[in-house]
């Protein structure tokens, strides 16, 4: 019975990644290798991030919102951007188009994130007898995270890999990357400082992720036009 609930939550958390891979042309071009490399880069990036967090942040006993600490965290969050950039450029990919490359990297990135941060709590918590909405929300959060990571990967690939993009769009791209990279801090601000309840936070994440996806999509197409 509780296993059933665990499976439901697992489907909600990890299903979208699989569906995304199999539904889009990613599966046709067999980009799993790229995704796996992205996962490895993600793990290394997370290690670096953790070391930075451990070095520069104090352990706070209270669950309150500390501006300096959060700013520090946001700054460290930019290591993600560097990691994605590394994954997109430095790794030797097989000959796949830019469009598929960023998707594969974003997908691998989001999947690794989900496994690392959500699998263990899910395994421990969702199998308990006690029912809570937490793990369903966590599943929805994973969906939002996937979309956010894909947008981030798309924008990073726009920022550094595409040379002939319209000059007017560059500040917008940078602004969006900043917004995406600081998203974890924004969410922690909402949760801790404003005291939002989980349903509200998850709703915000879903809506913001869809908005960011739409913006990045528009930007991507706007940049693609002159080259073609």
């Amino acid at each position: 019975m509780t296993m059933f609930h665990f499976l439901n939550c697992a489907i909600l958390t990890f299903g979208p990644h699989v569906v995304y891979y199999s539904a889009t042309p990613l599966s046709e071009y067999d980009t799993i290798g790229t995704s796996v490399k992205a996962v490895v880069v993600y793990l290394l990036t997370t290690l670096v991030k953790l070391i930075c967090l451990a070095t520069f942040l104090k352990v706070s006993d209270t669950d309150s919102f500390d501006l300096y600490q959060e700013l520090m965290k946001a700054l460290i969050g930019f290591i993600d951007v560097a990691g994605i950039y590394f994954a997109l450029t430095q790794l030797t990919h097989r000959n796949i188009s830019q469009t598929h490359k960023f998707q594969a990297v974003g997908l691998g990135w989001a999947f690794a994130d989900s496994v690392l941060y959500r699998l263990a709590p899910l395994w421990i918590g969702a199998r308990g007898l006690e029912f809570t909405w937490d793990y369903i929300f966590q599943g929805l959060e994973a969906n939002a995270n996937l979309v956010l990571n894909l947008s981030l990967a798309a924008l990073v690939s726009l920022m550094w890999l595409r040379k002939n993009k319209p000059k007017t769009l560059i500040p917008i791209i940078y602004a969006c990357v900043v917004a995406l990279a600081t998203m974890p801090s924004i969410i922690s601000y909402l949760r801790k400082a404003l005291g939002w309840q989980p349903p509200k936070v998850v709703g915000f994440e879903l809506i913001s992720s869809l908005m960011m996806a739409f913006i990045s999509w528009q930007l991507f197409y706007a940049c693609q036009k002159p080259s073609t």
Partner: peptide, 15 residues
């Protein structure tokens, strides 16, 4: 399960 399944199916079709 039904909701999650149909969500995934819809997502698949949409993508």
């Amino acid at each position: 399960l039904l909701v999650a399944g149909s969500y995934l199916a819809l997502l698949f079709c949409f993508l």
